[in-house]
């Protein structure tokens, strides 16, 4: 995993875990790897992983059991909310890149529709 160097890493770790959950690599109620294991896997500081987990706990997406570690929430509503936030974030990045290329917001849907049409699998 390669991190952007001009964005706090704890935010990028949060996104990484959200993505794992959204892709089903981490299931509702499943135990997260330990702080140390995550730090090694991502080659980041354990304090930074801890901060990411703290933020996620505060938002309710994960919860901790004393002495057992962190778990993904089983609250379906929260998981849906998390996923839609993730989608919104991707869309925002896409729109901003298109705008930088000079595409006006109002032409986006038309462009996207014709692209999807052109690349539709028969």
């Amino acid at each position: 995993m390669k991190f952007k160097d001009n964005l706090p890493i704890y935010l990028q770790i949060e996104d990484y875990i959200y993505l794992q959950i959204a892709q089903g690599k981490l299931q509702a109620g499943e135990k997260l790897p330990s702080v140390r294991a995550l730090a090694l896997e991502l080659t980041v500081n354990a304090n930074t992983v801890q901060r990411a987990l703290r933020e996620m706990t505060a938002k309710g997406y994960i919860f901790t059991k004393r002495g057992e570690g962190s778990f993904v929430t089983t609250d379906e509503g929260l998981l849906e909310e998390m996923k839609s936030k993730l989608l919104k974030q991707e869309l925002a990045a896409f729109v901003s890149r298109m705008e930088k290329l000079g595409v006006k917001r109002e032409s986006l849907t038309g462009l996207l529709a014709s692209y999807l049409d052109d690349t539709r699998e028969e």
Partner: peptide
């Protein structure tokens, strides 16, 4: 703090 620098959209190298 490294995260503080990054929070200002700057890389530590910059």
């Amino acid at each position: 703090s490294a995260e503080e620098i990054r929070a200002e959209q700057e890389s530590i190298e910059e």
